[in-house]
Design a protein around this nucleic acid. Structure first.
Length: 236
DNA sequence: CGATCCCAGTTGGTTACGTCA
DNA sequence: ATTGACGTAACCAACTGGGAT
């Protein structure tokens, strides 16, 4: 079914929308439509995934984005226990083993032992993330805390190195996620504080928030699309 | 008018999984 | 039945370009 929605020109555009982030109990039809792909293909892929070792992995947990059909809701109302629901979840998934390490979003926050209490805030987070700094690239970034858009230029290019792929740790991702739920944009001060606390460059924090907002928006689009689809089905 | 921020779109590295010899 | 190479899909950090402030 065609809805005539302009949701993207290429499948690549939606390539980072995780099927594992689907709404529980919902089908992926909206996603398939958005991709302009054969629904059967997507379902087959999903079944393949579910049959594999990834089954039961943290990546299969639903991403909680507080999405509602057609109504972007301001995140102003945040009580401590509503803000960090995943922190109180007692997820039995074993860290690392059998888990697709690629997915490091909110759903990876099951390693609750590494997190402070649900009431924890940015300023009170006790972890020392310096131990998580990885890679040759990071080793060269003692001056990493230069802030603002001046850090936009590739550090690697400045160092004459090829771009090195880094992956944030579960703890870093969970902490960023926690911060995102409080405020999905950052002022320079918050950015610097977060970067310092997580032992990341401000640019990394900035990029993470940008990508996270993009994922949220895409997820909302998916929900909207599904809602439209159901409306069309009712009309027909 | 330059600096900064954000967004949309893209790139490239990494990982899990299926297939096949 | 097992194993290792290979291809593919998914994920995501990081980048680019452009518009807005």
């Amino acid at each position: 079914m065609e809805l005539g929605l302009s949701l993207g020109d290429t499948p690549k555009r939606f390539s980072f929308l995780s099927k594992s982030q689907k709404i529980p109990g919902e089908e992926d039809l909206g996603f398939c439509m958005a991709l302009g792909m054969n629904g059967e293909d997507e379902i087959r892929k999903k079944e393949t995934r579910n049959d594999g070792k990834r089954k039961g992995s943290s990546s299969d947990l639903p991403l909680q984005l507080d999405l509602l059909p057609f109504s972007p809701v301001p995140r102003s109302q945040t009580s401590s226990n509503l803000r960090f629901p995943w922190l109180t979840q007692n997820l039995a998934t074993e860290t690392g083993k059998g888990i697709d390490q690629r997915t490091l979003g909110v759903e990876e926050a099951e390693d609750g032992a590494a997190l402070s209490s649900p009431n924890s805030t940015v300023s009170s987070f006790p972890m020392d993330f310096s131990i998580y700094t990885r890679g040759k690239r990071d080793a060269n970034e003692g001056e990493a805390d230069r802030g603002g858009a001046s850090s936009r230029a590739s550090d690697d290019e400045e160092n004459g190195m090829a771009r090195k792929k880094l992956r944030l740790t579960k703890e870093q991702s969970a902490f960023l996620e926690e911060s995102f739920k409080e405020h999905n944009t950052l002022n320079p001060k918050q950015k610097l504080a977060l970067a310092k606390q997580l032992n990341l460059r401000p640019r990394q924090v900035e990029v993470w928030f940008q990508n996270r907002r993009a994922r949220t928006k895409l997820k909302q689009t998916e929900v909207d699309c599904e809602y439209l689809k159901r409306c069309c089905e009712k009309l027909t």
